[in-house]
């Protein structure tokens, strides 16, 4: 199996603060990987470094076995930020059209892909609404729709359950499984363990910028529930 990304001994500092330290991780095609950790563990820093939005202090980062700083490497990935937002005067449809255009989706296919993405997230009826008129949950669903409109091979979701009600969370989990069945690779940043326990093929527990445990849910849990294991890892370090 080919690597989607590979991080080798990545160090990221903000001044004297270490955000990522000795961070090594690789991701194989077709996996759902959950990056778990408390607030400030370095999850978003890692994702932003992977996208080239932050510059790593040392180490190596590659995407599809290519340097992350080459723009063409991003053709195969889509990214949902922690707090999705877009220009308030755009409609939902024009937002998705913007994303589709930026992902170089053929113009003739755009309308169908936009409808499909909105249907997947159950927000087809919001198509003509302005971004400024949406609720937090609706906006999050639009962000998720944007992340799948281009049919990217690798999807990065940073806190995808943020602002969603239980129905929304269930929809996202179903979507995640569906995307995996289509052969997509998904990296999910989250601190909602219960949602990820049944979904992820692989979990990575981070704390204070370092990987503390990595493997399948069973391997990492080691006889405990994921929540209990996570609690022990994180709490044990902070005490």
């Amino acid at each position: 199996m080919s690597n989607i990304f590979e991080a080798k001994s990545v160090l990221k500092k903000y001044g004297n603060t270490i955000a990522l330290s000795d961070f090594s991780l690789s991701l194989e095609k077709g996996e759902i990987v959950a990056l778990l950790g408390p607030n400030g563990a370095g999850k978003t820093t890692f994702v932003k470094s992977l996208l080239g939005l932050l510059r790593i202090s040392s180490g190596e980062l590659s995407l599809f076995e290519t340097d992350i700083n080459r723009p063409e490497v991003k053709k195969k990935l889509s990214y949902l930020p922690e707090k999705f937002t877009f220009y308030s005067y755009y409609t939902v449809e024009s937002t998705l059209r913007f994303y589709a255009s930026m992902y170089e989706v053929e113009k003739t296919l755009q309308a169908d892909k936009i409808d499909n993405a909105l249907r997947e997230l159950g927000i087809l009826e919001l198509k003509g609404r302005k971004i400024s008129d949406l609720s937090k949950g609706q906006l999050q669903r639009v962000g998720l729709a944007c992340s799948i409109v281009g049919d990217q091979e690798f999807i990065i979701w940073d806190e995808p359950f943020s602002g969603l009600d239980p129905i929304g969370i269930k929809d996202v989990k179903d979507l995640c499984i569906k995307l995996k069945e289509q052969g997509r690779t998904i990296l999910v940043n989250s601190h909602i363990l219960s949602e990820m326990e049944r979904l992820a093929d692989k979990v990575v527990i981070m704390n204070k910028g370092q990987i503390r445990a990595v493997g399948t849910v069973e391997e990492v849990s080691n006889g405990l529930s994921l929540e209990e294991r996570f609690y022990r890892i994180v709490k044990g370090e902070s005490e």
Binding site: L51, P71, P81, T85
Partner: peptide
Amino acid sequence: SSRVLPQILSFPISRLS
């Protein structure tokens, strides 16, 4: 200020572009 920049720079375009 609208926090759209990270989303735009995550697209397959160079910063110069």
